[in-house]
Every structure is written in structure tokens, then in C-alpha cells.
Design a protein around this nucleic acid. Structure first.
Length: 384
DNA sequence: TCTGGGGTCCTAGGACCC
DNA sequence: TCTGGGGTCCTAGGACCC
């Protein structure tokens, strides 16, 4: 999808059409702390793009329309778009809310060429959601993705079989999937600016310089990508993190935040009927130094209290620096399905655990009936 | 100039096991 | 008294993606 969040907002608010729309953190008159999540094409003419600090975006275009991220709304729109994909193939691999790979190899007999399918999907998205999408068609995932990004917005790029290397050759190395700022810097030091230049070097040279990543990048530069389109897989981790509006050293505020994050993660685990086998606490201080501490749990859990207690224990494991805290995060990993894990048994023989679980179930029912925020720990009452 | 929040995957060292 | 080689798991950090 093209400028997805911003396009959804322009669709929903006609007054914003034709104007620079910036979806992201609150700019707070130029003193906001977040970044831009999405910028409309009008906003991009001011040099505004995603990941740009919101304060800079404000400076570049103070008259712009700054809107908060409405994630659950975009999720609903995303579901509508993925439903359209499902009409043409079961092999849909989501890459994000607004992007997916579709393997239509098995759909050709029914719908004609890949190009015909791409055109139909693009048209159905437009008529059913009033949103524009860009399509890339190729014989593998990497080339299709590059093709889809090339002519945004409303792009449609087909790379015929056998043409991938030729198509990629003039593009900058940053277009290679997996090349970020660090790797791009190393590649430039090797004198490599374009994908074609990288492709012309011996693969062993890349592998020697960058390890397995180098060998993989060399493959991509030739237009070789053997990765399959794999339909949605269960998540590997579930986390929540937050940046304070201003750095803080207040221990009460820090504990309250850890509690709120723990509650949020635990609720998502329960909604998805999964449990955490490991937990990680993340802390970023005022100097932007980030540290993590993690543990594997002796017993998987989806209980807020378990996660909160463990997160506090991990917090105490961090060396005391005396520096203020900028960001806190709590992440659950080693996730296991609640079904058939033997988990129930061990809970039953633990009266305190059983009581805690009944309490959680009651709280979840109150949430389901009266909405988020209807009930919360007393220590969080004042904070929102 | 200031750097979000949601993730994935990889690396590297140490503990531990056979 | 000195110490291999294979493997797994755990933890911390980092690069990258949208």
C-alpha cells in the first residue's frame, strides 16, 4: 500500500486530501519526542518521510496536518485488503500490515497471467477501500518487492523471467533487502555503489568481507532468491515498550510503567491463547544506551503478576548507572500454545496460582464487557 | 538534530553434556 | 596432569525491516 496510514486518514477525512498529512507522534509544537510513522505524498515534498523525528517534521512543515497513529483502525483496513488477496491464492505471506507476498503459481489456470491477477487485485483494492496499492511481479520474492517499490504510488512493475539481474543492476545497494546503514557503509568502502557492481565481484569476496550475509547479498544481486512464500506463521515474541515524555529517575513512575507494560503483554498473550517461556526487560537511558536482561521461566505463564514480578527482578539486575530512564520495554518470547502443553495440571496443584488465574479471568471478563480501562491496578489509576 | 514501537534474525561467548 | 570435538541451550547485543 502507498503511504498506508496517511492514505487511510486522507480517505477518512476528506478535508485532509491534497494536504500534507503526517501520521506519528504528537509534535508538541516542535518539542515532541517520537518519529513519523507515515507521510502523505504532499508531506514528502517537504522532505518528510517515515522514521524522521517528529520535531524535524514539524520544523519542515508546521502547517501540516499531524495525526496520531490509529493502529487498530489500520489493522481493520489491512484485514479487508488481505481478504482480497485470499480470493486469488492461499499462499499469502504478510510482511507487515500493508504489504504481502503472494505466490500465484497455482492460480494461473483459473485467473490468467500473474499480470492479470495483479491488475485485478490493484483494482479491487481501489474500488473496495478507495486506497492505492503498488504491485511488483517477478519470479521470486526479493525482485517482486523491489519492483513493487520502484514506481510508487499506484505502481505496476513486471520483471520478466530472466531479466532480474538486468533490472537490478543500476539500483543502489541500499535496495538490497538486508542492507541497512551499517552494511551500506561497509559496501561503499569496498567501492560498491550499485547492485550491478556488487554482482560483478566474486561471491567469495563478499562472503569473506561480510560472512554468510555477504554470500546471500551476492545471490540477491544476481536476482537469485530461493525463499518460498510461507503463509502466516505464529509470532516468535510479543512485546510492549514506551518512551517517557521526558526522561525520569522516579522509581514509582518506573515501576508503574513496568506494571502497565506487563499487563499489556499478558493480556495479549491471553487473547492469543499463548504463554511466555521467557521474558526480556529493556531499558534505554538518557544517553540512548540500551540494555536488556532476560530469563527463561521454569514454567510458562500468561499472568500479569508473574510477568510484572519477573520484569522487576530483571530491572534490579541492571547495574545502577544513576542515569535517567528514557524507555522501558517488556517482551515475552519462547511462546507456547496453550493447547496440550501439560500446563493446566501444574496450575491445578498450586492453590495460589489457581486463585490468581481466577482473578485474571474475572478481569478479562470485565474488559470484554466494559472495554479497555474499565478495570486496572489501583497503582495505575492516576496515570491515565 | 534527535533518535517510536512493533517485530525478525544473527552472532558470540559461556555453561553444560556426551 | 592436562585437556578433544561435537553438540545444545542460554543470555546480551546488534542489524535490519515496516
Amino acid at each position: 500500500m502507498d503511504a498506508f496510514y496517511a492514505s487511510v486518514e486522507q480517505r477518512d477525512h476528506p478535508a485532509c486530501r491534497g494536504r500534507p498529512v503526517i501520521v506519528g507522534a504528537d509534535p508538541h509544537g516542535g518539542r515532541g519526542r517520537g518519529v513519523v510513522s507515515a507521510a502523505s505524498y504532499e508531506a514528502r515534498t517537504f522532505g518528510i518521510h517515515s522514521a524522521l523525528p517528529i520535531s524535524q517534521a514539524y520544523r519542515r512543515c508546521p502547517e501540516g496536518v499531524f495525526l496520531p497513529v490509529r493502529m487498530s483502525h489500520y489493522q481493520a483496513v489491512s484485514a479487508q485488503i488481505f481478504q482480497i488477496f485470499g480470493r486469488y491464492t492461499d499462499l499469502v505471506e504478510p510482511l507487515s500490515l500493508d504489504e504481502a507476498f503472494l505466490d500465484v503459481t497455482g492460480s494461473l489456470r483459473l485467473f490468467g497471467s500473474a499480470e492479470a491477477i495483479g491488475r485485478r487485485i490493484q483494482a479491487e483494492i481501489l474500488t473496495e477501500t478507495e486506497l492505492r496499492a503498488s504491485v511488483g511481479i517477478a519470479t521470486n520474492k526479493f525482485v517482486a518487492k523491489v519492483a513493487s517499490d520502484l514506481r510508487k504510488p499506484n505502481g505496476f512493475v513486471v520483471v520478466p523471467p530472466g531479466q532480474a539481474a538486468h533490472f537490478l543492476q543500476p539500483l543502489p545497494i541500499e535496495r538490497l533487502w538486508g542492507v541497512g546503514p551499517k552494511t551500506a557503509g561497509r559496501l561503499r568502502q569496498m567501492g560498491l555503489m550499485t547492485i550491478g557492481e556488487l554482482a560483478a565481484r566474486p561471491q567469495l569476496e563478499l562472503a569473506a568481507a561480510l560472512g554468510p550475509l555477504g554470500a546471500h547479498l551476492w545471490d540477491l544481486a544476481q536476482g537469485i532468491d530461493v525463499r518460498e512464500v510461507i503463509p502466516e506463521e505464529p509470532a516468535q515474541s510479543v512485546g510492549a515498550e514506551t518512551t517517557f515524555p521526558e526522561d525520569t529517575a522516579d522509581p514509582v513512575r518506573i515501576r508503574q510503567t513496568v506494571l502497565a507494560l506487563s499487563e499489556g503483554v499478558a493480556r495479549r498473550l491471553r487473547v492469543e491463547a499463548i504463554q511466555a517461556g521467557a521474558l526480556t526487560l529493556k531499558l534505554r537511558d538518557e544517553t540512548f544506551q540500551t540494555q536488556t536482561r532476560s530469563v527463561s521461566l521454569s514454567e510458562p505463564t500468561d499472568q500479569s503478576q508473574d510477568i510484572y514480578r519477573t520484569a522487576l527482578m530483571l530491572l534490579e539486575r541492571l547495574p545502577f548507572s544513576g542515569r535517567k530512564v528514557r524507555l522501558l520495554g517488556v517482551t515475552a518470547s519462547r511462546l507456547s500454545d496453550l493447547m496440550g502443553s501439560g500446563q493446566q495440571l501444574s496450575l491445578e496443584i498450586n492453590p495460589a496460582g489457581a486463585k490468581q488465574r481466577r482473578l485474571t479471568e474475572a478481569v478479562d471478563r470485565i474488559h470484554a464487557r466494559f472495554g479497555k480501562g474499565a478495570i486496572r491496578p489501583a497503582s495505575l489509576l492516576a496515570s491515565s
